[in-house]
Write a protein that binds this DNA or RNA. Structure first.
Length: 489
RNA sequence: CGGGAUGUAGCGCAGCCCGGUAGCGCACCUGCUUUGGGAGCAGGGGGUCCCAGGUUCAAAUCCUGGUAUCCCGACCA
């Protein structure tokens, strides 16, 4: 059939792309590296966005919006920061087009060259800290807890739908604090929100950890992250939260007067998650039949399919079920399409990951039942119409939990302790590399050497779990604790 | 940004080597029959053959350049 997708075993990359395209999440666009997020894909992103937004607001953050363009001079104020982003910036040099003299179309008007070139934001620290300078005078102005939902542009060499696109959507939080402790606390608070969101809403288990100096955000003193393991055994950085120290305060001269009437530099954090989460969501749960969505993020949680087609009696039963489900806050769609037969509809709703499907035929109605099919396990059962709303409410909770448990079990299976480099190499060089928990001597040199030899990078220094010291898997030198290695997206 | 592959109807592809009326499957339209896991038959509509140059009487096909996507590297959320 037209909608068949490549199997994961056959070609994981093709499978991923097939799911994204055939479940109508996104498409490639006319612009290199940029995607069109389609309505169904955007509906999922809206669910992600709305939930995170709620969680940020519950912790005292407010939204604002800063410009897309950043004066070139701003970017060079923090040395580490420029180094990190210089290679992937889009630059605006002119502000006007004109008709080509030879009539061949429009060309850039050479007279409209900008005095100072503008950078399309790859992230907003610089423009935001330039603004915060004006907003912060006293300790009474702190903390400043601001988030923005925005698009950013990073000119990537190689792109993949949702996972790495030239333009992407994200939220970036930028906070200012009077003390170091408060800023560190904020950084960790956000990391916890990210982890909670990933696990409770996306049903995607994550490891909270600290990035090595080598993997740290450009301009940060410390970068914390959540790392997830995808079904192909590769790691995905799903979110980062940075403790920026006083680096940006110093670069943009942001000082406040403390209670003792002394000038101090402000302490900062920044943190973000992006449309990359969509990629993580897809690659954590989906299968060879298509997308699998956790109920909490599914735009449509329940679909009702009349068998074989709508009739007055089936319509009536469907309407009753819909009313009962809606009363419980469950989103439900009745597939009244007359053109396609049930089998086609089943496949279609599976492809787009609807968690629960109800089949209603005359035979079911005669028995006072409906057929309930769950997307995660594909199990089907007959359930009584009476009390079906409660049954489905529980089922959705069960599916949400099952998806998380399944992903967590997978991650546990694919996380291995390794104590010598030969094992390390043979384990990482397979179709299912997974996480390798190994000792590391703490040097960037060793980290890079291991990357060169195995393609694996240190995803993070886990914050929880085994803290026993040991010997580095490559050099044998002392190691403070095990770190997590993986091949990464 | 380097190496490889691909671009032909909405989707998936054949045709290209060897230049000469643009094809197939699915989807779409009409009709009839079907209907508890991607329906069958019959008829029908739909094409700047990725773009721009060039060679030629003639280009989907040969040549040059560009562009997009995928895969493998290097770089990164």
């Amino acid at each position: 059939m037209a909608k068949e997708i490549t199997t994961r075993a056959d070609n994981y990359s093709d499978w991923y792309q097939d799911v994204v395209k055939k479940a109508n999440l996104a498409d490639h666009s006319a612009v290199k590296g940029c995607m069109v997020i389609k309505p169904y894909g955007f509906a999922i992103w809206e669910k992600i966005r709305d939930q995170l937004d709620t969680m940020f607001k519950e912790t005292g953050h407010v939204n604002a919006y800063f410009p897309l363009f950043i004066p070139k001079s701003f970017l060079s104020k923090e040395a580490q920061h420029v180094d990190g982003f210089a290679k992937e910036c889009a630059v605006v040099t002119h502000h006007r087009l004109m008709n080509a003299p030879d009539g061949s179309g429009v060309v850039v008007d050479p007279d409209a060259k900008l005095e100072e070139e503008l950078i399309v934001r790859p992230t907003s620290e610089t423009i935001i800290w330039n603004t915060y300078k004006d907003w912060i005078n006293s300790y009474r102005d702190l903390p400043l807890l601001i988030n923005q939902w925005a698009n950013v542009v990073r000119w990537e060499m190689r792109t993949r739908l949702f996972l790495r696109t030239t333009e992407f959507l994200w939220q970036e939080g930028h906070t200012a604090h009077a003390t170091k402790d408060e800023a560190v606390e904020e950084t960790l608070k956000i990391l916890d929100i990210y982890a909670k969101f990933s696990e409770e809403y996306m049903a995607m288990p994550v490891i909270k950890g600290i990035k090595t100096a080598n993997e740290r955000f450009a301009g940060a003193d410390e970068t914390y992250c959540i790392e997830a393991l995808m079904q192909d055994g590769k790691a995905l950085q799903a979110g980062t939260s940075h403790f920026l120290g006083q680096n940006f305060a110093k670069a943009f001269d942001v000082k406040f007067l403390n209670e003792n009437n002394q000038q101090e530099f402000v302490w900062a954090t920044s943190w973000g998650v992006s449309t990359r989460l969509m990629g993580g969501l897809i690659m954590t749960h989906s299968d060879d039949e298509g997308l699998v969505l956790p109920p909490k993020l599914a735009p449509v949680q329940v679909v009702i399919v009349p068998i074989p087609k709508p009739t007055p009696a089936i319509d009536e039963a469907a309407q009753k079920i819909m009313a009962a489900l809606k009363a419980k806050g469950i989103s439900v769609q009745y597939d009244q399409d007359m053109k396609n037969r049930p089998g086609f509809k089943f496949a279609e709703h599976e492809l787009r990951g609807v968690p629960v499907r109800l089949g209603i035929g005359e035979r079911d109605l005669a028995n006072g039942q409906v057929e309930v099919a769950r997307r995660d396990t594909k199990e089907k059962s007959a359930q009584n119409l009476e009390g079906i709303d409660r049954y489905i409410e529980d089922l959705l909770t069960d599916i949400q939990q099952n998806l998380f448990n399944r992903a967590a079990a997978f991650r546990t299976e694919q996380t291995r302790q390794v104590d010598n480099f030969d094992d390390f190499k043979s384990l990482i060089d397979t179709d299912m590399p997974g996480f390798l928990s190994a000792h590391w001597d703490g040097t960037t040199e060793t980290e890079l050497k291991i990357k060169e030899l195995t393609k694996a990078t240190i995803r993070c220094i886990p914050m929880e779990g085994d803290k026993e010291p040991g010997q580095c898997v490559l050099t044998g030198k002392p190691s403070a604790q095990r770190v997590l290695f993986a091949k990464a997206y």
